[in-house]
Design a protein around this nucleic acid. Structure first.
Lengths: 145, 145
DNA sequence: GGCTGGTGCTTGAAGTTATCAAGCATCTAG
DNA sequence: CTAGATGCTTGATAACTTCAAGCACCAGCC
């Protein structure tokens, strides 16, 4: 039962922007409830996967490296993150979540009720399908390397 | 047919953040190529559906109404947008795309090559499925309120 | 060794975004 | 007509964002 209708790419991209807006709004409100800006929240969210160098963070967040300096400064001042010198390359600063930072981002994720409720409109099979489609469309290579 | 099975909500939300991050980065780069910030581009993108009052724009973009004033000011100064007084309510300012504004947002959409290429990894049926799933998950239908 | 070029991060300047409090104009209810 | 609510703007303050410039470090090369 796939063929809902003949959706063209433009319509799909339009719906993507709407979906992004809904997700982003949900995330922003959740981050604000922990007194974090959207950019700070996004940074914690990326770091939840593991430590990352400044320039890697900048690349993932699609911003200039110099911008990350200020964002990480403020997160570090709050004790949510810390900089560790790179082992092999001393120019590199690896940014690591502190325990408190990990706690905060998990709280934020838990507060994304709108997104969670939306996904609950799908069955388990449908969520699997959505996962597989997003993975093919948006990740260069599947997680199953 | 990747056949990923048993995906929990947390994994799906993680992939959503990655996917929407990729879309956002693609959009931001495309907007920058037309000398627009991400917020300005998002505003034009919303207006592509039709005119909208300031407070409606603020609501869709999840920001304070006072913030829209500045963004629309700058777009208006460039001739991409214009304010029109509301017909029934004179407090309302309806923001309308100019022909030039319409041209610019269409150019930006056309430059989102990464997203387009990703969607091209899916078959027509799969795109229909993705559309239906995103619609169910992210657009709030007044089904039973 | 010492040079040279390239990379990773930070600083400073300038503009944009974001929120809040306050204000004006207008609408609506009573 | 008055009172309260709504739509938008202004001003203040902080954060974000980019760019150019600079420092520290790495790599290759004579």
């Amino acid at each position: 039962m796939t063929g809902t209708r003949g959706v063209d790419t433009a319509q799909l991209m339009e719906l993507l922007s709407v979906s992004l807006g809904a997700y982003y709004g949900d995330f922003t409100v959740a981050a604000a409830s922990e007194n974090l800006t959207a950019s700070q929240g996004k940074t914690l969210n990326v770091l939840r996967r593991g430590p990352a160098a400044m320039r890697v963070l900048a690349s993932i967040l699609s911003c200039d490296a110099s911008n990350m300096t200020g964002i990480v400064d403020r997160l570090e001042k709050r004790g949510l993150v810390r900089r560790e010198p790179g082992l092999t390359d001393r120019r590199v600063k690896n940014v690591v979540l502190t325990d408190e930072g990990e706690r905060v981002i998990d709280v934020i994720r838990g507060k994304m009720h709108t997104t969670r409720a939306g996904l609950d409109n799908l069955s388990a099979d449908e969520r699997d399908t959505l996962y597989a489609l997003l993975e093919r469309a948006f990740t260069s290579q599947p997680t199953r390397v």
